[in-house]
Nucleic acid binder design. Structure first.
Lengths: 340, 340
DNA sequence: CTGGGCGATGTAAAGGTTTACATCGTGCTG
DNA sequence: CAGCACGATGTAAACCTTTACATCGCCCAG
């Protein structure tokens, strides 16, 4: 009864008194088999506890039920909640999730492609904006792929991200509505596409409020805590201070906040600060950080859904999905100090 | 030349002018094939870019090169750094990592067992202390399994964790060396084994310092922020205050810190607080939290190494690996206020 | 010189599916 | 009533490996 080896399709066929072909059809194309037969097969399946052998199936079909997810760093706290969305969606459709990380090593990225040679994975979710497969000229044939956060570098690959422009716009609008008019943007960068878009949102917000742009209030930064601190120092040295700092991400905001605290200033009484991303740490800061939340689980869900769509029919319904980010109001923003 | 379909072992055999059996042997048991033949085969492999089809191999062997990792919540920030350790170690041995989460739903846990019916996975890494497979009486046959953090509930399964007793001991020793003698332990629990061990460390530390135990200073808690706050309130109501709070984890410590701040007390000037785990947020708190670091990446690495060992020969060299936790000194601990 | 043994290689089966094609029977049309 | 079409089912090949067993030469001992 309870065999040591799992039941095969043949066991089911014997018990249901049909051929294995019929069993297979009853499972995968139920409309092709007579109702009575279907019933017998289902009973036999229940009796044996049969589960179709995914290995044999994948071998025969030349296609597996695994999705490979490659990120530069799976240790990144941002990664895990996206993973939740990815995994839930995948499982809901009978797919499993395989993970890998490149740690920005192209060679390692290349290794993961082997999963596709042998159909160990059917599709790819890519976190890096840049293809992790070395120089772009020799781009190997890619499996069905969906990018997350940023478009994949050499294009033609659909991706799911957040509407950075709108997010930035929400932050700057909040600051303006509190009465700020001198708002710095910390973390401009030419290498990160998302940062450029956030800057666009910032500029659009200022323009909409009729505030003339001020290039001296836009500072470079690479998104690290240190870069925030550095930018702050530059502003202090110039003696050309804003009343609010809009930062390109939460790490930068933390750097700014630490710098201000070190100089003895109070947030939000004397300066306001906003971030972007809503990393888990944001609510732990003092004061807790007002920021823009990336809907991470939703991003994962959509990315996986898009990929699965590509896997069934060939044409994805959309080639770019931008989700709406939310403003998370905490305690780092207030009205500018009244000048008197 | 660059076919659309990947090369099979047969292509290699044809080019090398040998049989497919010889190719297989050249790859997996090189000592069994003549040196000259091996050379020809290797050249043919290089020429064709052959990669052995993992599906066919797994089907034939009845064993795959995937390890399933199941956690209650893969969104937990603690999870991701362990994952790094797991994945690195797995890949170094030619294994891939498959992930799943149960969200404490036994049914979902059960679903993942299907991966083993069809040999889609060869081994299991389990994060929950309790088996995620419903009631324990009907425990299904488990594949080779290693637990992480806590021993798996119905035993007999090796696990990798941290030496909680030693970690707690380090925390309490620090507090004692700063001069504290009235030290509360927040977060006692009968359900979490790790918490019990941390309490043991606390008690051992007090005993070693000749401080008599005081049951009124040991408070229940489930490890949430709220539980920390609650325990604090109880202590205040009793008007029986310690000078330091040793918390069973960082969340609890945050709850205590927030409660103290809300009552207008300063940390560490008036009260000292320690945590356990060193979650990423710990350094963002104000004041930053002195805590015990779990060597997460190392835990992942050891757990995977142990599992792979079980997969090759049947007997694991050890059945319990406890890693040494480190004290991370930040700013939440100071000497007790001088009474005057 | 013959037979046995051994090292190197080949042959073929097995692993569990899916599916093109063949077969069978029934009911309808002409 | 004959023939055809169609729906339901069965047969067998193919997917790509690994490996037990067979085969083939060759060397050495008797």
């Amino acid at each position: 009864m309870s065999d040591s080896t799992p039941a095969t399709i043949e066991d089911v066929a014997r018990i249901a008194e049909v051929s294995i072909a019929t069993v297979s059809r009853a499972i995968h194309m139920p409309e092709k088999v007579a109702k009575s037969t279907r019933l017998k097969v289902n009973q036999a399946i229940a009796l044996t506890g049969y589960t179709t052998n995914a290995m044999a199936r994948s071998l025969r079909l030349g296609r597996s039920n695994m999705i490979l997810v490659v990120a530069p760093d799976i240790g990144d706290p941002n990664f895990s909640s996206i993973l939740v969305g990815l995994e839930n969606e995948a499982r809901a459709h009978g797919y499993g999730v395989l993970i890998g990380h490149t740690q920005n090593d192209a060679q390692r990225g290349l290794e993961y492609l082997k999963f596709f040679n042998s159909n160990q994975a059917a599709g790819l979710i890519l976190f890096t904006g840049i293809l992790p497969f070395g120089h772009q000229e020799v781009t190997p044939r890619l499996p069905p792929t969906v990018g997350v956060f940023e478009p994949v570098f050499n294009g033609g690959i659909p991706y799911v991200g957040v509407d950075d422009v709108e997010g930035a716009r929400k932050a700057v609008d909040l600051l303006i509505s509190e009465g700020h008019r001198r708002i710095a943007f910390i973390g401009d960068s030419h290498t990160r596409l998302a940062y450029g878009r956030r800057r666009s949102g910032y500029e659009a917000g200022l323009a909409a409020a009729g505030i003339p742009p001020n290039r001296r209030l836009i500072l470079e930064g690479d998104g690290t805590v240190e870069s925030g601190r550095l930018a702050l120092e530059q502003l202090f040295m110039r003696d050309d201070l804003p009343t609010a700092f809009m930062c390109v991400n939460d790490q930068t905001a933390l750097g700014v906040a630490l710098g201000l605290k070190a100089r003895g200033y109070e947030i939000p009484d004397q300066f306001s600060v906003t971030g972007f991303d809503d990393v888990p740490q944001a609510s732990f800061m003092t004061p807790s950080l007002t920021t823009i939340r990336q809907p991470r689980t939703a991003i994962g869900k959509h990315a996986m859904a898009l990929l699965l769509e590509m896997l069934s029919d060939r044409t994805p319904s959309e080639t770019e999905i931008l989700l709406r980010p939310d403003l998370v109001v905490r305690n780092s923003v207030g009205p500018p100090p009244t000048r008197r």
